[in-house]
Design a protein around this nucleic acid. Structure first.
Lengths: 379, 379
DNA sequence: AACAAAAATGTAAACGTTTGCATTTTTATT
DNA sequence: AATAAAAATGCAAACGTTTACATTTTTGTT
């Protein structure tokens, strides 16, 4: 609620921007310029305006902003006052030019518009803001070619560090980052890629947990509904976990129960309805909660009771999974935590210049048993 | 998939940029440094390295990147080659310093982790990328104080323009933007704030449409489930639309059917269960789809049929609203379109420097009648 | 072939900070 | 009070581009 007073000197005089040898004029002009108007672009005051007003040199003002305690308290107050009166805002761009950090950190996600990533993004962004950093974010829609362009674009903006979601990345992008020694972390997966530390969760383990849960309940007629695993390492890991666990229990999934399904509730619902009407399994394992929601809706539409007639598990514990009817048994992925840890890690790396390779951080998943699963009646 | 070869020319000789008298050591160091590594920060080549390799001046290289068709095709190719060989990446920070646009545009949203905003964000971001711009995004969680800090922070990063979601903004923030003549648009609402053009949708009209739909079906025992309207102008507009439409139809909403409900399916479910068990209305109007989902789940849990026993409408047409059982009658808000138009508008304003006040853009809503509403049996 | 006009390129001064070094002021020590 | 040491400040050269303006090269015309 503080009031800024923007002092604009009305009788601005601008002389010719004389750029030639004989410096006499030039020097004078410069001086004049500085006296007459709040110099610098767009009428915004610069560090020198503040300095002038506070009766110190620009260097001192700069120091005041970067390391206040090296300037004398008296001076400090004068600068503070001057800055406030002029409505001064630092220009980090100019600062960054000088080899300083830009204060921006990049985040590349497959897509922003996705329940689980938006949680991650929000957490990452908030954590950065807490430390006076800004986030540059971009999405590539699972297109590694685009990822290269995005990395380049972020590099052009001098990001100090970058977080990449997923394990599959374009070699060119990684190489650009390596050459420039930009700290990188890989998010979401347990194990990272060559030389890139990862902060993530064990997707495989999460999948194992829900599968085992179903097996424990006596299910063996189990259907799988997973997204395309080719360009999605999360889905790949999860499905692998499911398959291996089922194998241990000697459960085979016939081909017509192993269906591919995009990340979309409506489409999942359609696929599930089809399956439920023909040859219904006793349980569905879904690649993520969004798909699981579709299955539950499909059952609801067909009057098939969950969990009495069919059990459903998801992976993710998205918003809404606890509220759906019946509440969904799933495995919680610590999206917020990952975002937060990622931000902290990168800030650390940047400020401490600690180039030591960090160990991977695995943040555990958690099986959440709700009401969409039950033991089969005739075990 | 192309391979970059990073050719580092070891025996580069550069003349001493002699600045100052007694530079002996320093001079040596500098020279040494330049011999040892491809000059400039972090081992990344600069525009001058490219120029040297291509046998032209830095100016020409700069021109090549900013306006290729002013350099002769022959030269163009040489520069292109040199840049590729060195793995050169432009430094927009340095460019921006020169008064050029920074190429970044800000977006401030109440929260990123929100179905409808993340759609908006994704669209905005994609559109910017299409035009080689980058998005700086931040969220303030409905805290106007924080908004000031965020605006300042974005300004420090020299954003070229900014989009603000909502109509309520801190005066200080707006003033900072005004002084620096940063193009601003206000998103989401039909009418903007003083002097700020808006790109949005008529929330009021959307609310009127769903309400009228319900009235047409013969409902008059109607309950309202809205978020707190104090810091949320969208919710405020919507509720106002509902109330006025009901008033025209001479329908009163008793206080116990006018309930406040946060933006959360689980909590909406709880509130709705309570209402359905005591004194059930014949229809629910929900402030947004998320809340409507909660109501539908509540009914499902209690064995109350939708729409046979109770009708439910939402506002928003979020992902999942078409797949829920029963599919939700709601009004579609053109989030993606708003994001896209916003991006285009701001880019236009920045590049054309067209400071003429733009007219507000109202993108229409659309009533989507699905299966969660029905005429009441005993009209 | 000579010349003017147009196109391409080079030169060097900005852009708004930061920071090493030099200088001044303050504080502590005798 | 004189001096050394420490703290505070000032000076001016970076940082890596862009862009007037000057200069050179190319093109077109006769």
């Amino acid at each position: 609620m503080q009031t800024f007073t923007f002092l604009l000197n009305p009788q601005k005089i601008h002389q010719v921007p004389d750029c030639s040898r004989h410096m006499q004029d030039s020097k004078l002009n410069q001086l004049e310029q500085r006296l007459k108007r709040p110099r610098s672009r767009k009428g915004a005051p610069g560090i020198l305006d503040v300095a002038l007003r506070a009766g110190v040199s620009g260097a001192t003002v700069s120091r005041y902003f970067n390391n206040p305690n090296v300037v004398k308290p008296t001076t400090r107050r004068r600068i503070e006052l001057a800055a406030r009166e002029l409505g001064y805002i630092r220009d980090r761009v100019a600062g960054a030019l000088h080899g300083k950090m830009s204060g921006t950190i990049g985040l590349i996600v497959p897509t922003i518009d996705h329940a689980i990533f938006s949680e991650l993004i929000e957490a990452f962004s908030s954590q950065l803001h807490l430390h006076d950093r800004t986030m540059l974010i971009a999405s590539h829609n699972y297109d590694l070619e685009r990822e290269v362009g995005i990395v380049r674009s972020l590099l052009e903006r001098r990001i100090d560090a970058i977080a990449l979601v997923g394990r599959d990345h374009s070699v060119a992008a990684l190489e650009m980052l390596r050459v420039r020694r930009i700290p990188v972390v890989s998010l979401w997966n347990a194990e990272g890629v060559s030389g890139i530390p990862s902060i993530g969760t064990d997707n495989r383990q999460g999948a194992i947990d829900v599968t085992q849960h179903l097996i424990n309940l006596g299910h063996h007629r189990i259907a799988l509904l997973f997204p395309d695993t080719q360009f999605n390492d999360r889905a790949r890991d999860r499905k692998a976990g499911v398959i291996s666990t089922l194998a241990v229990a000697k459960i085979q999934v016939p081909e017509y129960w192993d269906r591919r399904c995009p990340y979309d509730t409506a489409q999942a619902k359609a696929v599930a309805m089809d399956m439920l009407q023909r040859n219904a399994p006793s349980a569905f394992i879904c690649g993520n909660d969004i798909i699981a929601h579709g299955v539950i809706h499909a059952a609801s539409r067909l009057g098939i009771r969950v969990p009495a007639d069919v059990s459903v598990v998801g992976i993710g514990d998205f918003k809404g999974s606890s509220a759906i009817e019946p509440p969904l048994t799933t495995v919680r992925l610590p999206a917020r935590r990952i975002g937060q840890v990622a931000a902290d890690t990168l800030i650390d790396k940047v400020t401490l210049k600690n180039m030591a390779q960090l160990p991977d951080r695995i943040i555990p998943t958690q099986l959440i048993v709700r009401e969409s699963t039950a033991a089969i009646a005739n075990g």
